[in-house]
Design a binder for these strands. Structure first.
Length: 502
RNA sequence: GGCUCUGUCGUCUAGCGGUUUAGGACAUCGCCCUCUCAAGGCGGAGAUCGUCGGUUCGAAUCCGAUCAGAGCUACCA
């Protein structure tokens, strides 16, 4: 077996999604590993679109995947839209590569045309299953057709595929997987697989081998659903006489019930997580840790550390369950580490939603004001989409929507002296000699506690309900500072009128 | 059916024959802080390392068997 990994050679890896849907969590993790490995080794990260399935591949999906990768910050060195020396990077535009490879195989008699129709094959399979034995593979009907006869049928326009002529008595196919270790597969169970379909298009196994070779890929890092395909591909590499890259297979990502992750489990694409208010830093960190560890102790691993320390040697073989709880916790950590400016930028959709206005002028005009919100919000958020609920009250103007439960528990509670407290605070907040700044206002209100013989809680909670509408809110006086005196006084007046005067 | 892989707290994981009374993180429980909610600090509980047998003075770590789960076995990728 030849290895294509000579010492000192630059690492070239690739992420090769098929555009049959959005970028799935599992695919995103594969992309992250490839990207991080390239960055850690000073290698090249290639993006290739595998759209050889004409029925399911769409240009729209390709765009969705590119957008998702960009959002995660996984920049590719070669691929769609950035080009590179081994393009094009979209399989349907590389048909000449596969055609040349097929000619090469024909010349070596390593392939043969097969005229069995899909229907015939399916019948045989069904018959085998009924007979009790499961289908053993293609029965090689066309393998030994007389070449001249075959050529005549081809010339007559009879539909045919091209199959690999797997050498008889081939020794077990062996390779060293970077994560699974030494692998050995008996060759006699390998089918004479189809390389080129009757419409002339290449099948997956054939296309990957041609492309990975052509693009000088040194390490194939992909999902372990391809582990069993690897010996098949090695057979193709051998037939073509191409050097074999290093393989690294990644375990699967499962849903909470231990079954393959699917829509049934909720969000499965990175875009859905983005729309729920997860940060791209969170996604990269969390997914990187699903199947890989830095040292077994560190959980928060910023992307620059990932890019420096990532390696194939600490990848797990075990399937991992995708636990959203931990993802959510981690998102909170990253939110707390942001700068106010970065926060406002990332949170724009939800900030605007809270304000009920999303035009550019409004947003730009409120940037500074929004940044002041960051410290109040950061330690209470775990997802960005929680923002509207927490700050909506700031945009109510002179109006106030009182939460019934909060009113009962803090304003109408027996002996709580809420009305008295509100009146006293109102006087402080109406006093224009006190500067409109949260510390000054807070100190002035707090000074009321002693003479009134009220615990801070009994003074502040009624005020909180009167101004925010709820007994649970972001910090009270910081919020007041961000509102106008007019709005604040109006809300207190309204609350006093409506709660206490029947 | 055949081929192949996996199996450590609920979850992600560390562990590579003795330094392990199996470490960390999330979740959970308790306490502290506190004008709410959080965040933060401290502490607790939680894994006889799938099971059984073997090798060894000694095994989560090596070997065998067994069970359970997964992938592949397509003119899908």
């Amino acid at each position: 077996m030849v290895s294509n990994k000579s010492a000192g050679e630059q690492v070239r890896v690739r992420f090769a999604p098929s555009p049959t849907g959005r970028l799935h969590i599992g695919g995103a993790r594969t992309a992250i590993y490839n990207w991080a490995f390239a960055r850690a080794t000073g290698g090249v990260f290639v993006l290739r679109i595998e759209d050889t399935d004409p029925d399911r591949s769409t240009e729209e999906n390709t765009q969705i995947i590119l957008r998702a990768l960009r959002w995660m910050g996984l920049d590719w060195d070669e691929g769609p839209e950035v080009g590179g020396p081994f393009g094009p990077y979209i399989q349907t535009k590389r048909t000449h590569i596969y055609a040349e490879a097929l000619e090469k195989l024909k010349a070596k008699n390593a392939v043969y045309p097969c005229f069995c129709s899909k229907e015939e094959l399916e019948q045989k399979r069904a018959a085998a299953e009924e007979a009790g034995k499961a289908y053993i593979g293609y029965d090689k009907t066309c393998r030994d057709l007389d070449p001249a006869v075959a050529q005549t049928r081809i010339d007559a326009g009879e539909p045919h595929v091209w199959r690999l002529r797997v050498p008889e008595g081939h020794e077990p196919i062996e390779f060293d997987d970077a994560v699974y270790g030494h692998m050995s597969f008996p060759a006699d169970v390998m089918d004479d697989m189809i390389l080129v379909r009757s419409d002339g298009s290449p099948t997956y196994n054939f296309a990957v081998v041609c492309d990975d070779t052509d693009m000088r890929i040194t390490h194939v890092i992909r999902g372990d659903d391809h582990l069993s395909n690897t010996p098949r591909q090695i057979l193709i590499y051998e037939a073509l006489g191409y050097p074999i890259p290093t393989f690294a297979h990644l375990s699967m990502i499962l849903g909470p019930d231990g079954k393959k992750l699917s829509k049934r489990h909720g969000a499965t694409s990175v875009e859905e997580y983005r729309d729920e208010g997860y940060l791209s830093d969170t996604m990269v960190n969390f997914l990187a840790l699903l199947g890989w560890s830095l040292d077994g102790e560190t959980t928060i691993i910023p992307r620059d550390v990932l890019c420096e320390k990532f390696g194939l040697n600490r990848i797990t073989k075990k399937d991992a369950i995708f636990d959203e709880t931990k993802l959510t916790w981690m998102n909170g950590v990253y939110i707390r580490e942001m700068t106010p400016a970065a926060f406002v930028e990332a949170a724009r959709p939800w900030l605007c939603k809270a304000a009920g206005c999303d035009d550019d002028g409004f947003f730009e005009g409120h940037r500074v004001w929004f940044e002041k919100l960051y410290p109040l919000l950061a330690e209470r958020l775990v997802r960005l989409d929680e923002i509207p609920d927490k700050i909506a009250f700031l945009f109510w103007g002179n109006n106030i929507i009182l939460d019934a439960d909060s009113v009962d528990k803090t304003l109408k509670k027996e002996g709580c002296r809420a009305k008295e407290a509100l009146l006293a605070c109102r006087d402080v907040l109406a006093d224009t000699s006190i500067s409109w700044n949260f510390e000054a206002l807070q100190d002035a209100c707090k000074a009321l506690c002693e003479p009134m013989e009220l615990k801070p809680k009994l003074l502040f909670q009624p005020l909180r309900v009167a101004i925010t509408g709820n007994m649970v809110s972001i910090p009270l006086f910081e919020s007041i500072e961000l509102m106008s005196r007019e709005n604040v006084l109006a809300r207190i007046d309204y609350t006093i009128d409506h709660v206490f005067e029947q």
